[in-house]
Structure formats: C-alpha cells, structure tokens
C-alpha cells in the first residue's frame, strides 16, 4: 500500500482542487483530509453515512474560585501567560492554556481542576470517490498533530481492511506541527506550488522538510502561466535538486466554476486541464513504481 500526500507550504496554491481531481480519476484508494483545522475536501467529495467520533485530547486547567486562596502561585508558574489575576481568584485563558498541568500540580489549595478537552470530531465516511477519513478540529483548538496522526492510522486501517492500494491525502499548509505529523513515512509527497515569490520561497522550505523526514517528493506547478520566468526558475531549481515535475497547470477560472457547482475539475471539463491532470497522475504512479 502507498501513502501519497499533497502539500504546498504556502496555502491556496490549489492542493485541495488537485487532490479532489486525483481522487476522481484514480480510484482504488482511501481518501484522507489532513487539513484538520480548515478542511475543504468534503465540499467537493460530499461524504455521506459518516460514522462520527469525538476527538478527546489533552486537558485544560480550570480554577475553582470557591477553593482558590488567591496566592497567585499559578500565575507566577505559568510560562504560557495563560492565567490572569482576576479579583478574588485568577482565571485561566483557554486560548493560551497548553494543558501542561504545572499549575494543577503545584496549587497549594488543590483548587485547579483539569478536565479533558474535546478538540473536535473525526469521521469515517463514504464519499463520491471512495471511502474517506476526515475531521474537524474545533475552531481555536490545539492538538492538530495528534488528530492528523489518528486520521492517517484510521485511513491505513481502512485501506488494509478493504484491500485498497493507496491512501491519498490532502495536507495542511505550512511546515509546522500538523504537516510534520502528516509527512513522515509517506511514499511520496506531491508539492503544489505556484510561480510567485511566496510559492517558490515556501516550496524550498517544504522540500527542506521532506528531506529532513526522508520523504520522496515531486512538484506540480499550478498557475504556471502567471509568470513564465518564475516557472522556468522553479523547474530549473527542481532539476538541480533531482525533483520530478509531474505537471504544469494553467491559471484557469474553471477550477472555481467547478467548485461553485460542487464538482471537481475533471468532472467539469473533459479536455484541456483534465488531460493534463490525468497525465500528472500517470507520472505520479510511474514515479512510485
């Protein structure tokens, strides 16, 4: 079984539209949306019959004002600046609390509770293009890395159970915690970039991350015709760094027109872009084999 991850560093380069198109034309896979804090793949794949699971992860401090002696030891100890003085008893700011349990452990009055946190939900669903594992982190929550790890594990279990060849995953932007959890151990990371200063800058960072975690990578240049010089520079950089370029896709409003009616680009069009995307997928599969 192969795990393929689509990422980009910079957001908005077209990861989700391209993942959705691959999900449509490929088959024989479990689809996974690892962008757990702003997931969009379900808007195109329309998963149904979801089995819903709560994602309980970590804890959060909560000061009981009735037993608190207002010694402010917790305020002094908290390195996340998450506890504010507040008249008779200090108050925890849940947006800043990292759940480290330091205040709970040291409170001389034993006045700090430590309830578990519900950080969101995850789903095992049937999508238009095959089984799908996805989630929604609660807005403002943390532990996205743990949720990503959980989704990958569930997607692999589902693929094994059904005897499918691949897990195809849409990844989060950036290079931090959720991306690191999404990346390690993939058979291939497909980086979607664009010929803009931000696109190339973040491509180099995300390739650095792939090297760090020894994950093979290749590149798709989206919106290549926005700036041909920059596109050539990216291609040159890729060839100098032994990175395959699987496709160049044009800047085309058709992606958005398809999205507005809830379709993926390869359903919306039968020629042009669709042929290029089919070729890109062939290139990816050949590269894997």
């Amino acid at each position: 079984m192969h795990e393929i991850l689509i990422i980009s560093g910079k957001g908005g380069t077209g990861k989700t539209s391209i993942t959705a198109a691959f999900a449509h034309i490929a088959g024989n896979h479990v689809i996974c949306d690892l962008d757990v804090d702003a997931p969009d793949l379900h808007l195109l794949l329309k998963p149904e019959h979801s089995r819903v699971h709560e994602f309980i992860s970590g804890n959060e401090a909560a000061i009981n004002p009735d037993t608190c002696e207002n010694c402010l030891d917790c305020v002094d100890r908290c390195r996340f600046d998450a506890i504010d003085e507040n008249g008779r008893a200090p108050k925890v700011n849940p947006l800043k609390c990292e759940g480290c349990r330091v205040c709970v452990t040291f409170c001389p009055a034993g006045a700090i509770d430590y309830p578990e946190k519900n950080c969101g939900q995850w789903y095992l669903s049937e999508s238009r293009f095959g089984p799908m594992v996805h989630a929604q982190l609660r807005p403002g929550e943390e532990n996205s890395g743990k949720l990503v790890t959980l989704l990958r594990q569930k997607a692999k279990e589902k693929a094994t159970e059904l005897g499918l060849d691949r897990v195809l995953a849409d990844g989060p932007p950036g290079i931090g915690c959720p991306v690191i959890s999404a990346l390690g151990g993939n058979d291939l990371a497909v980086i979607v970039t664009e010929p803009t200063p931000s696109g190339s800058h973040d491509l180099e960072r995300v390739i650095g991350l792939c090297r760090h975690f020894r994950t093979p990578a290749g590149v798709i240049i989206n919106k290549f015709d926005l700036n041909l010089d920059q596109t050539r520079r990216i291609e040159l950089w890729c060839s100098e760094n032994d990175l395959p370029v699987f496709a160049r896709l044009p800047h085309d409003e058709a992606f958005t027109r398809a999205m507005v009616i809830g379709q993926v680009i390869t359903e919306y069009q039968s020629d042009g872009l669709t042929k290029t995307i089919q070729q890109a997928w062939k290139n990816i599969i050949n590269h894997l084999e």
Partner: peptide, 29 residues
C-alpha cells in the same frame, strides 16, 4: 492561515482583526 492554535496566537492581542477571503465555496467555509 488556519483557525487552530498558531492562528489564534497571532491575532490574540489585536485591537482589530481583518479576515481576508475570496467569494468561493472554500473561502466561505
């Protein structure tokens, strides 16, 4: 980008927050 801890950390102490979006289904969601 995003709505989890890094994004909240960035905007937490602001006086005013601008949300930049595009009028597409992904943007709105």
């Amino acid at each position: 980008p995003g709505v989890s801890c890094p994004a909240v950390n960035a905007v937490m102490d602001s006086d005013v927050i601008f949300l930049v979006t595009e009028p597409t289904p992904f943007g709105v969601y």
